[in-house]
């Protein structure tokens, strides 16, 4: 290990670069999992689009510390969220609350699915007459395809 280089790099760090910092000590496993889950849903303001649980930025770590502090103080999930919403608005939530026009986010995919389903059903022929053989023999379009089917359907 080169101590000279370490001192040099460390000196550089204090002058030009933001020092990295560690977070507060983790809580017990169960509450820490809650901290992590809540952190996953909160957007880090200093790091583009990442959650505070994912981002390596010191700012994200500070915010995750805050979540940990609030969880340790026995606050509910909603209270933790509202702490951040109070500061950054609903922008802080990576999963928008289903209210107002946000509902479109959830309803439109569902509507698309239903519409698609309906279109598919209209493509189908009416139910075959009972008694008719339920397997239609594959119509050979040409020799090549017939050959392929021969190979495949055996």
């Amino acid at each position: 290990m080169n101590l000279g280089l370490i001192l040099l790099a460390a000196g550089l760090v204090t002058g030009q670069y933001a020092p990295q910092r560690q977070g507060t000590d983790p809580l017990d496993a169960e509450r820490e999992a809650r901290v992590h889950r809540l952190g996953k849903g909160l957007r880090c303001p200093m790091c583009q689009g990442q959650s505070i649980a994912d981002s390596p930025a010191p700012a994200a770590r500070a915010q995750l510390d805050k979540v940990r502090e609030l969880v340790a103080a026995g606050r509910s999930d909603a209270e933790v969220e509202s702490y951040f919403v109070d500061r950054y608005g609903e922008w802080a939530l990576l999963k928008p609350k289903p209210q107002g026009s946000n509902l479109l986010l959830w309803l439109l995919p569902g509507m698309l699915l239903l519409a698609g389903l309906w279109i598919i059903l209209t493509q189908v022929k009416r139910a075959p007459t009972p008694g008719a053989p339920s397997v239609s023999p594959p119509k050979a379009d040409d020799d090549y395809l017939a050959q392929v089917r021969n190979d495949v359907d055996r």
Binding site: T24, P45, M46, Q63, D65, R87
Partner: peptide, 14 residues
């Protein structure tokens, strides 16, 4: 503010 607690409380973004 070594742990950035005050910065977080004030909603600092940079």
């Amino acid at each position: 503010d070594p742990q950035s607690t005050m910065a977080v409380d004030y909603g600092v973004t940079g």
